[in-house]
């Protein structure tokens, strides 16, 4: 991510120290992850200690400190999806792409996340790929779904 763009984002919030979460979120949204030098830059620009920026960046699950895959696979493991068998779906996804939640495949094709009820319990169990919900699935459906994402 180039420095000019980071400056633009920081300026959007008037460079106020309390905008650190929003600034990081905008950067995460555009760049999909937060490189160390970006964190340092945000820390310097906003006058927030790097230790505090790191605390925030590692605290929230939305922030990634590692490069992310082209496709984000999210397995809902909310209470209702759990009750309807999401653990087996997650297991199947892990088997197929070979990574655990929070990780990214070496070819940067997929990043895997679990958790966070999205409030569509009727659709569960489900996996969400790049924001698209694949609902009421069984472990056997997973392979066909993932095939569509190159």
């Amino acid at each position: 991510m180039d420095n000019r763009r980071i400056d633009e984002i920081i300026n959007k919030y008037d460079g106020k120290p309390n905008s650190v979460i929003m600034v990081l979120m905008d950067i995460q949204h555009e760049n999909k992850w937060l490189p160390r030098e970006v964190l340092e830059k945000v820390s310097n620009k906003l006058g927030v200690p790097l230790s505090e920026v790191l605390h925030i960046a590692t605290f929230y699950k939305t922030f990634s400190l590692k490069p992310q895959g082209r496709h984000e696979v999210h397995v809902c493991t909310g209470t209702s999806c759990h009750q309807r068998g999401s653990a087996k779906i997650l297991e199947k996804v892990q088997d197929l792409i070979g990574i655990k939640p929070g990780e990214t495949t070496p070819d940067l094709r997929f990043s895997l996340e679990k958790g966070s009820c999205l409030g569509c319990c009727t659709l569960g169990p489900e996996i969400v790929v790049d924001g698209m919900h694949h609902s009421n699935i069984t472990p056997d459906d997973v392979e066909a779904i993932l095939k569509n994402y190159k």
């Binding site: 200690p49 790097l50 230790s51 505090e52 790191l54 605390h55 590692t58 605290f59």
Partner: peptide, 14 residues
């Protein structure tokens, strides 16, 4: 952070 104002150590993760 508070006494030395160096912030060389951080809490990370949750």
């Amino acid at each position: 952070a508070e006494v030395k104002k160096k912030n060389a150590i951080a809490f990370v993760d949750q």
